[in-house]
Design a protein around this nucleic acid. Sequence first.
DNA 1: ATTTATCCTTCTGGTTTGATAGGAAAAATG
DNA 2: CATTTTTCCTATCAAACCAGAAGGATAAAT
Lengths: 134, 134
Amino acid sequence: MKLSTRGRYGTRLMLQLAANYGKDEPLPLTEIARREEISVKYLEQLIIPLKAAGLIESRRGAHGGYVLAKAPDEITIGQILQILEGNISPVPCVKDPSFCIKYETCNTRKLWETMDKAIIQSVCDVTLKDALSA
Amino acid sequence: MKLSTRGRYGTRLMLQLAANYGKDEPLPLTEIARREEISVKYLEQLIIPLKAAGLIESRRGAHGGYVLAKAPDEITIGQILQILEGNISPVPCVKDPSFCIKYETCNTRKLWETMDKAIIQSVCDVTLKDALSA
DNA sequence: ATTTATCCTTCTGGTTTGATAGGAAAAATG
DNA sequence: CATTTTTCCTATCAAACCAGAAGGATAAAT
Ligand code: FES
Ligand code: FES
């Protein structure tokens, strides 16, 4: 039940961008890497899907970098995790019934659905803005 | 953020034992394996730590098998997962501060702690008895 | 032209997962 | 006592996943 470094580093990355939101200059990965002590090369990989999902915009070249595509209170931690970790539900069958052979007669599914809802609520209710001010 | 088969199969195993609770005969793994369509060999591995933790008692030899060591309403799903999956918190640093270098200045820890509490509550409030009657 | 950056693809060592295999020890049965 | 049934114990293994490094192409500013 561990969150991988993708989700954890990605959230830290997004918080840095959130802190920089509204400023003139975009924030380059080199700076984020320095502040968070994560390699640029690894951050590059994480930022690709975040950009593809439309959460981030980029500017290339010198004085380039990244900026949030939306305000910090319009992006939730749940969205970030969903993008970087894939489906975060504890068992696949919650989203994909064909995953479990004994789906029909399963007496544990209700359990995992309860767990799933608790997890989703705990991260989808929180925006970057909330996390920054906390 | 997936629960592994250890936690999922183990919970199903424990639910079978809970359903058998109070009966004269212990339930052998061959029978559980047949009902749940999981190999006996794999179930054997899962049941070792459950027994070591005192949740289960065994009787060897013919007509042997397993019985719950406590009533179904005294065993929670959280206990089972803790035993089979290890620490179920989404990030290790919640339990072990030395895990994260930037522990002191981390701005995401509060987030994961919230998530952790939500997960724990969703499984520790539920007993085998609850899960059976649900 | 040089520098600073994003962008894109690939590779790899290490760990975890999900089992299977083979047999030893104990208890009931005939 | 021999057989069967069952738990008990240890080892092995393929596949998947994780964390990250490497190498270079492209674009913009100076
Ligand atoms: S249906 Fe998927 S765990 Fe039961
Ligand atoms: S201290 Fe562990 S994630 Fe921040």
